[in-house]
């Protein structure tokens, strides 16, 4: 299916039609955890994009060399290496972002989006298509995080990107930057996306077999079998 798409389509599909967070519902943990501020959302999104781009390129380049049976550990090592790399880069150049992302930077390793793209796309397509796919998915993820972060920061702190917002700043609803507000905001945003797309939820994730699927932890299909 992917071969006959143009590269532009590979990029654009990740932003709207197959937005990893809001449509495919992957990578919930960082989406909820770091979006107390819009700036953190952008930082997390860009860090994830970097890891996704690196791992997609390497995995698709090595897709014929990695035996099918050990592909999951191989993917894990590749992804974890890129996570370590971005950790160093952020610690060295943007220490404030490094501190505010904290442990969630390490946890990019187990972000379902990265595994999902490695499994569903990079292991089946060539390097250039995989790189475009990673860029598209990364932008989509960053935009979703930025949206979440903006809503929570404006309502919860009365600020946007650190700037005070008139009126909203006087009496911010603190609960929006607390964990409960994260769940609520994400639920509302997904509901609005559902409405706009006029689609019957939940989205069906197109994948091959559930056997040894790294994303099966959150996949309803797998959960129903038990």
């Amino acid at each position: 299916m992917a071969e006959n798409k143009s590269l532009g389509q590979e990029i654009s599909k990740g932003i709207l039609k197959e937005n990893p967070t809001l449509v495919m519902l992957l990578g919930m943990c960082p989406t909820l955890a770091v979006t107390t501020q819009a700036m953190n959302g952008i930082g997390m999104g860009l860090a994830t994009t970097f890891v996704l781009l690196g791992s997609n390129i390497v995995i698709s380049a090595l897709r014929k060399a990695i035996p099918d049976k050990v592909r999951i550990p191989a993917f894990i090592v590749i992804i974890a290496s890129f996570v370590t790399l971005i950790g160093f880069l952020l610690e060295g150049f943007v220490p404030s972002l490094y501190d505010s992302l904290g442990i969630y930077l390490t946890l990019i390793t187990v972000n379902c989006i990265i595994f999902g793209r490695a499994e569903m796309f990079a292991s089946k397509n060539n390097v250039i298509a995989s790189a475009c796919d990673a860029i598209g998915m990364g932008i989509g993820f960053t935009l979703a995080l930025f949206l979440m972060g903006s809503v929570r920061e404006i309502i919860g702190a009365g600020q946007w990107l650190g700037m005070n917002i008139p009126f909203a700043h006087d009496n911010p609803m603190l609960i929006f930057i607390m964990p409960a507000g994260g769940f609520f905001t994400l639920g509302m945003i997904i509901a609005i996306v559902n409405k706009l797309k006029n689609r019957k939820p939940p989205a069906e994730i197109k994948c091959g077999s559930c056997e040894k699927c790294p994303m099966s932890g959150g996949c309803e299909k797998e959960a129903e079998k038990i």
């Binding site: 964990p179 507000g181 639920g187 559902n194 939820p201």
Partner: peptide
């Protein structure tokens, strides 16, 4: 309501449970 069915409703319920843990 249809637009909330599935994941959105689940997330909002999770938010209320989270409030109780606060």
């Amino acid at each position: 309501p249809e637009m909330f069915r599935g994941v959105p409703a689940t997330l909002i319920a999770a938010s209320i449970v989270s409030v109780s843990f606060m």
